[in-house]
Amino acid sequence: MTETTDAPKDILANIAQCVQTGKADANMNIPMGSKGQPGVAEWVDQAIAKDVPPQTILAEGLMAGLQVIGKKFAANEVFIPEVLIAARAMHAGMNKLKPLFAEQDMPSRGTFVMGTVQGDLHDIGKNLVCMLLEGAGWRIIDVGVDCAPEKLVAAIKEHPDCAVGLSALLTTTMVAMGKAVSAIRESFPDKTVIVGGAPVTEEFAKEIGASGYAPDPSAAIDLLDRLQPAA
């Protein structure tokens, strides 16, 4: 924890730090032995009390913390549980901020439609991508697992400005990923479609006509920033 004053920058640093360690609130005993100490929820309350703008709390506190975890995940310094715990802590802060954003519109990076392709029921990778992108400000439309191309196309029609993410874990469902991209391209030739998952490679992504390949959930954030820059 940052040696703290009650200066807003220290509070924001503590929020980011608590996101990284997964300390959602004072009741939570994560990290072990930290029960009773302030977590994300309490630090966000303090930031709000100090009139720190919610956008700043989100960007420089919550998102900053989750981005560090995303980078550590990409570098194999932390693994799935740490990312999930961090995302949970971030959501504790988001829940505090949401009522404040209601009046001035929750900032959004864009809409992201995400699904695991047909024939594949694996959803952990998909969920990780959803959580990190949500942390990066994207509005997530999770269309679930075993998604037929028609389901993806229908979701895109509902959210025409969205970017799309497709996940596959099985070598054999990579074929379904190709079919999904083709189906999307038929109706939305210029749609940003990014792909990822254990068997997927950059080369395969190009082969099936995807806009880009994200080797890990954190890379999806940078990839989308490149392919679909913020307005």
Binding site: G22, N29, P31, M32, F79, I80, P81
Partner: peptide, 17 residues
Amino acid sequence: HQGIPAGRAVAAEIEAL
């Protein structure tokens, strides 16, 4: 299955989970 390499030290909170 959590992507943690064999032999890697695991934090107490992850063990508890």
